[in-house]
Structure formats: structure tokens, C-alpha cells
């Protein structure tokens, strides 16, 4: 894979890529908790995968990590430490989001050209001069395997690309800002199998360079890519973290919650409390 940054170690803009530490994290929409009481350590430079049935608050949890929840009327409690800094307490969310990139379920290219999709954020964050931006655009497009496909149509509208290409462009756009952390919110679920496989390979190729948090409901994929697996389970009072472990979480040793164990083993399971908490974050 193309090394995105100088050096073989995981060196972000501020030095090394740091671990994320979630302490007593919770998010409520009005009176309803999407999830609550989450304590979790996301190790640096590893792929941590968050799984759980839909409506358990996975996407909401992800949105608190780069403070996108602030775009909605939501209330957040607890702390998120990136290295030593509490990013929930940082006055300027822009500084947080520069260090933490995010990919969404549906590809979100801007209604601009392929080039401008990457160049606009680069300009915004002061990458100068122009040839430095050009270089960064090529490097990141190569890193996501898109360069050879789009090199002749960099000025064509990004929305003319296929779904898989769009998602890789979004990944390139996030990587171009050289974040330390990547948040991936079901990045494959809107894509066909081949494109999804491509994205999965890309995620694996980024292991060791970024602290990655992947949210998915595809258990098989979770087990394929995870260094760490965490299960968020819906409860009466919002989603709760019921198990954290390696990629084989729940297989050898059952979790205290029988239905959570059944879920992790791919069995059919009736999820209690889901109706009350089934509220998508909408981000």
C-alpha cells in the first residue's frame, strides 16, 4: 500500500496517532438516551469495530467522537480523550474535526469536480501552494486506488462516479487532511459486493497508520477486520456496551447477556427494548 505519511510509524499531524478513551459517554435526543455509560479504550493505530443491532446507538456514538452530534439537538455527557485532550471540552470543534476524519454510510461527494472535492478542504485548511495540493490530491487518490480510474477526468463532476468510486473519493478526501483518527460509519453497506470488498481492503491497508473506529452491522466483516470488537446492545435506557474483546468476541466465551451472545454467534435473536430506543441519529 502507498505509505500516506512520512515514516513507517503512525505519525499524524501532531506527532503520533493517539488512542481514544471514552469515559462515561452518553448521548440523548430530548429525553431519550441513544446510548449511555460507555467506557471504552480505542487503541492507537488499530481497527476497532463497533457492532450491534440497528437502533442500539452505534452511529450516534460515532458522531460524538468528532462532535457531529452538535449539528442536532442532542445532549452529550461524559468525556472523549484523544491522547490527553478532552475533545468534548475543546471550545472549537473545527480543531477536533481536523484530527478526526469521518466516512458516512452513503457516499457524500460534494456537487463539485473530483479534484475540487479534495481541493476545497485542503484550501480551507491552509495547504499551499497549489502544487502541494495537487501532490496531496494525487497521493491520496492513489492510496485509495482511484487515481488510474479518474486521472483523465479530475474535472468531471464527482457525482458521475459509481457508488464505490464515490466512497473511495470520500475516503481520499478525509485522508488528504492527514487525520489521526478515522471514523467509518457503515462505509460498505450502501455498496455492491465488489465495491464493498474494495473498501474493506482499503480499511485493512490503513491499519497501523490511523486509529480506526468502524461501525458495522455486518458481523462477518467485523470479525474479518477487527483488532478489537465491541458490542453495543439496546437497553431500556439507551444502548450499552455489553462486551469488548478481540475479533472472536462471544465465540469462545459467552457474554453475560444470552441474547447478546446469540447475536454475536449469528443466531436469530429477539432484541428487547429496541422499539423504545430505535431512533437513528440521522447524521
Amino acid at each position: 500500500m502507498t505509505v500516506l505519511r512520512a515514516g513507517a510509524t503512525c505519525a499524524g499531524a501532531s506527532g503520533t496517532c493517539a488512542e481514544l478513551r471514552l469515559e462515561g459517554l452518553g448521548l440523548a435526543y430530548g429525553a431519550r438516551w441513544a446510548f449511555r455509560g460507555v467506557d471504552l479504550i480505542v487503541p492507537a493505530c488499530r481497527i476497532s469495530v463497533l457492532v450491534g443491532p440497528s437502533g442500539c446507538g452505534k452511529s450516534s456514538l460515532l458522531s460524538t467522537l468528532n462532535r457531529l452530534d452538535e449539528l442536532q439537538d442532542a445532549r452529550c455527557e461524559g468525556r472523549v480523550l484523544l491522547g490527553k485532550q478532552d475533545i468534548r471540552a475543546e471550545p472549537d470543534p473545527v480543531l477536533v474535526r481536523r484530527r478526526i476524519g469521518m466516512i458516512f454510510q452513503r457516499p457524500t461527494p460534494f456537487p463539485l469536480s473530483v479534484r475540487a472535492n479534495i481541493e476545497v478542504p485542503l484550501c480551507e485548511h491552509g495547504v499551499r501552494p497549489a502544487h502541494a495540493r495537487e501532490e496531496r490530491i494525487e497521493t491520496t487518490l492513489r492510496a485509495v486506488g482511484l487515481w488510474d480510474e479518474v486521472r483523465d477526468r479530475l474535472d468531471a463532476p464527482a457525482q458521475q462516479l459509481s457508488g464505490g468510486q464515490q466512497q473511495r473519493l470520500c475516503l481520499a478526501r478525509a485522508l488528504a487532511l492527514q487525520p489521526e483518527v478515522l471514523l467509518l460509519d457503515e462505509p460498505c453497506s450502501a455498496l455492491d459486493l465488489r465495491a464493498a470488498g474494495h473498501i474493506e481492503d482499503l480499511i485493512l491497508s490503513l491499519r497501523g497508520f490511523y486509529t480506526i473506529v468502524l461501525v458495522t452491522h455486518d458481523l462477518a466483516q467485523a470479525r474479518r477486520v477487527a483488532d478489537r470488537l465491541a458490542l453495543l446492545w439496546p437497553g431500556a435506557d439507551g444502548g450499552r456496551l455489553v462486551g469488548v474483546g478481540g475479533a472472536d468476541l462471544g465465540l469462545a466465551e459467552p457474554l453475560p447477556d444470552a441474547s447478546a451472545t446469540a447475536y454475536l454467534r449469528g443466531e436469530r435473536v429477539a432484541v428487547a427494548g429496541l422499539a423504545r430506543t430505535a431512533m437513528k441519529s440521522g447524521v
Binding site: 468528532n66 457531529l68 449539528l71 470543534p93 473545527v94 480543531l95 477536533v96 474535526r97 481536523r98 476524519g101 469521518m102 458516512f104 452513503r106 457524500t108 460534494f110 456537487p111 476545497v120 478542504p121 480551507e124 485548511h125 470520500c170 478526501r173 478525509a174 487532511l177 440521522g282 447524521v283
Partner: peptide, 18 residues
């Protein structure tokens, strides 16, 4: 303008003006 694109813009730390 789709809410998803606004969210994506915010996630890229783009200013409101941009």
C-alpha cells in the same frame, strides 16, 4: 442541499462560509 453533505462538510471541518 442534502443534510448528508452538510454533515460531510462539517466532518471535514469546513467553515460555515465555505
Amino acid at each position: 442541499a442534502p443534510a448528508e453533505q452538510r454533515a460531510a462538510a462539517a466532518a471535514l471541518a469546513l467553515s460555515r462560509w465555505t
